[in-house]
Every structure is written in C-alpha cells, then in structure tokens.
Design a protein around this nucleic acid. Structure first.
Lengths: 166, 166
DNA sequence: CTTGATCTTCAACAGGACTTGAAGTCGAGG
DNA sequence: CCTCGACTTCAAGTCCTGTTGAAGATCAAG
C-alpha cells in the first residue's frame, strides 16, 4: 500500500513531527529501531510509519522501559507496514505488566518506609529498614537483606521517575 | 562525646561492615556524603557513625533516590554525632513522599496503558497514549502532551530505567 | 627488618540515551 | 551560480554510580 513516493520524510521532518531532536532520530536508526532509505545524495528518507514506531519508543521512554526492550518487541513487527492494533495490543499488555511489577515494588518499599516512620525503632537500632550493620555486622555483609538480588536495578529511575530532565 | 580513639575504622573495615566495596566508601567520601580523618600515614580513619550514614545512603539507593538528594538531606545533619530519631523521621518522611509521587505517576501510566488495551482506539489514530503526532502534528511538536513539562528529564537514568534492570 | 595485606591517588571504563561539535555535502530558492 | 539551511559522518561529551587497574606507600605481624 505504499503508493506515492511523496510520503517520504527527511530526518528533520520526522524529528519535528515526532517532537524530538534530529540526533535522536538518527540515534534510533543506529540502534535499529527505525529504518530509512537514502536519496541519491545519501540523505535519509523515512516512510510515514516510522512516526508510529517513534511514538511507541516515546511511550516506552515515559514508562521507563529501556530501548533494548523496545528493540525486542519491535522484532515482531513487520518492517514494511504500519504496526496494527494487534501489535499494539501485544506490546501494551507486555509493558503494562512490567509497569505493574515496578509499581508493586515501589509499594512495598513505600509501605516499609512509612511503616518505619511511626514504628518502634526508636533508637534506630535493629530497624528493618535502616539495619545499621554495626551491631548486626556479624550476620554477614551489609544491609542488602531487603532487596535480594536485584539491587543494581533501581538506579536512576531518574529518568524514569520521569523526573528529571535532560 | 567522642571519647575513645579506638572507635576509628579503616576504609576496609567500614566497607566490610557496611557490606559495600572500599571503592564505594571512597566514592561516597569524594561526594562529600561521609568524612574521615587521616592517620600520619595518610590513611583514612572513619568514626562509627559513618556506618549509619552509609545505611541511609543504601536505603536511598534501594528507593531509587539519587545521591544528590541524599547529599541534600545530609546537609541538615550534624557532622560530629550520630543522626538521631528526629533526623531519620524527617528524612524518611521526605523520601516516603517522593516514593508516593513516583508510585502515583506509575499508576497513572498504568491506568492509561491498560485502559488503552481494551479501549476504542481501534485504528490507533487519535489514541491518547500513542498520539501519533502525524495527523495531529499541527498542534505543535510531538507526543509530549501527557507529561507536561518534564518530558526531557528522563534522560538517562540509566539506572532509571529503574526498572528494568541493569 | 621483611613480608604481605591493606592502604593511597588518579585515570579510565561501563552502560543507557542521547547531545554536541567539527568538517564537509546536498537541495531549493533567487 | 550562489547561498543558506538542512543534511552527512564520526568522535567525543554528558549524567550517574560506581568499579577496575596501575604504581606506589603504609601498617601490623613475625
């Protein structure tokens, strides 16, 4: 169904329509998330449907989902046509689940922390959350008891948190 | 109140008790989150209360709170004594609030996304979440309508992905 | 005093998602 | 044809939280 060659967009056009920088568009292409054809002069020309892909990328970004994951779900997408409702269904379900898990984790931490505010750990000793590791040091290394293996992950959220800004 | 000089810990000791790497201890000191005295031979010697500070840092880390924020709350802490219950109260309340906000944001996204799964955006056009920015491009740059001002922030957060895991 | 463990500093790397800059090319209007 | 803005590539920088390595000093025990 691609009929008119008119539908080809330059990188600047795509960037403008998607509301991102041209550098980002090129970056996404480098990452294999979108693709383009070239003019005789070696300039990129995108088909319209890259805009939908970029929308998906931006949704993922807001959700705090890494590009690698986006790349993964994109492998199931047809390269030559618009992703359809079925595709979006599949992807949104998958991401909603990830979101749910992340929220649950946050809820757990929140409960722990607020529980601790009013709790009995008056002297701060043996508090579950604080877990000084001083008197308790003998039990083995450090206060990681609450987040078993995944400690590394949370990291910045910053982004995700959506908070901070570039 | 500091009586015995016996209470001075080397970097290795602190690391072991806190359950982190010595490099991390030095890093925290570089960042001004903890402090030390030096022996005549220029080696670090920490007072016991740095362990509590490190505990706070680790809690923050689990919460996905950046070190810069930790540094901020630390400015209100006395340098020469153990942080007390009052301090911990203040800090935990503050962090709990941030957590709450983060969770709320996630819930909002989740609702949006799951709402979208079963919703009427059959053709994916004019979907709130997807918001192609194609037909709608005229309204100004891009699909950032849902995250009013902060869109740029997410940036790397490598960690941020927060979620996803390192 | 010697040995070996621990310590010192400083620089560089990791990785995620981009941005910025340099140096040069293309395309469209006049 | 000229010019200017938009485009090209590639390298390097940014932010964050550390880790790793190199080269050398110090500490505690024997």
């Amino acid at each position: 169904m691609d009929t008119a060659p008119v539908d080809l967009l330059s990188v600047g056009e795509v960037a403008r329509r998607a509301g991102i920088a041209t550098s980002a568009v090129r970056f996404y292409e480098d990452q294999g998330l979108i693709s383009s054809e070239r003019t005789t002069g070696n300039q990129r020309r995108y088909r319209r449907h890259v805009l939908r892909r970029i929308s998906l990328i931006l949704v993922a970004k807001r959700l705090g989902i890494p590009l690698s994951e986006v790349a993964e779900v994109f492998t199931g997408l047809p390269e030559d046509r618009m992703p359809g409702k079925h595709d979006w269904d599949r992807i949104s379900r998958r991401w909603a689940e990830q979101l749910r898990a992340r929220r649950a984790e946050l809820e757990r931490l929140e409960a722990e922390l607020t529980g601790c505010i009013g709790c009995g750990c008056v002297s701060l000793r043996r508090c579950r959350v604080l877990n000084p590791g001083d008197e308790l040091a003998a039990e083995g290394p450090g206060p990681r008891r609450l987040l078993p293996g995944t400690a590394g992950e949370a990291s910045a959220a910053g982004g995700a948190g959506g908070a901070a800004g570039a």
